[in-house]
Simulated assay, not measured.
Amino acid sequence: MLKIFTTQLLGIFNRIQEKEALAIEDGARFLAQAVISDHSIYVYGKKELEGILNEALHSSEPFPSVKPLPHDEVDWPVFQPADKVLMFCASPTDNDERQTAEKLNEKGVGLIIVSPSSKEDTSIESFADVHIDLNLTRPLLPNEDGTRFGFPSLMVSLYIYHALSFTLKEILQEYQ
């Protein structure tokens, strides 16, 4: 089972590297605008994806200018024009996350969304200034009964988070 899981996970990482490299670079440039202008990058993740915020705030290499985005809109800060939100979503059709993205979009906040792509017109990615496809739409491992399990959304999101972080670091070094 571990070999199948590893193979599947490597396939996802390779797809992200091949297909999302430009979106990752665009996202990092977008985030650099907030850092360079001394504004904030708010990070959002629901349930297991709150782990991204912990990585951004408490890792040995914290993300620059990062703050948590509260889940409840009444707790949101007064956004400045150059503030950005980096939003991680395990599903492109979660209604709460879609409403959060829509409200941020209405407020004119720059929004980078990392989620699986969806063909629906009402998906969350329609509110993003930059969308990065998570490339994870179903569990990776088959059960004997035909069902599937093993949905590593945090692991794949962390891969994208680090890709954004490394690219942002390169951009900021070029700027200085």
Rank of each mutant, 00 (worst) to 15 (best):
Q33V: 13
T122M: 03
E106G: 03
D129R: 09
D38P: 02
P62L: 12
S65M: 05
H58M: 12
K107T: 01
P81I: 04
R138Y: 13
R148C: 09
A28W: 01
H131E: 03
T137L: 13
D145H: 11
L86M: 08
E18H: 05
P139A: 14
P62K: 06
K47H: 04
L134I: 07
K67A: 06
V85T: 13
K103F: 03
V85I: 09
N105G: 05
E55T: 11
L31A: 14
E55M: 10
T100C: 04
V66A: 12
S118P: 11
V35G: 10
E25G: 01
G45A: 01
N135E: 15
R98H: 12
E55C: 06
V78M: 00
L57H: 02
N95Q: 09
R148Y: 13
S59M: 11
L57R: 04
L111G: 11
D26T: 08
A23L: 00
L134N: 08
A128D: 06
E120D: 14
R29F: 08
L111Y: 14
E73Y: 01
S37T: 13
S65W: 00
E61I: 15
S126I: 09
Q99E: 09
N54E: 06
K119I: 15
E50Y: 00
D94K: 02
T122E: 10
L136T: 11
E97Y: 05
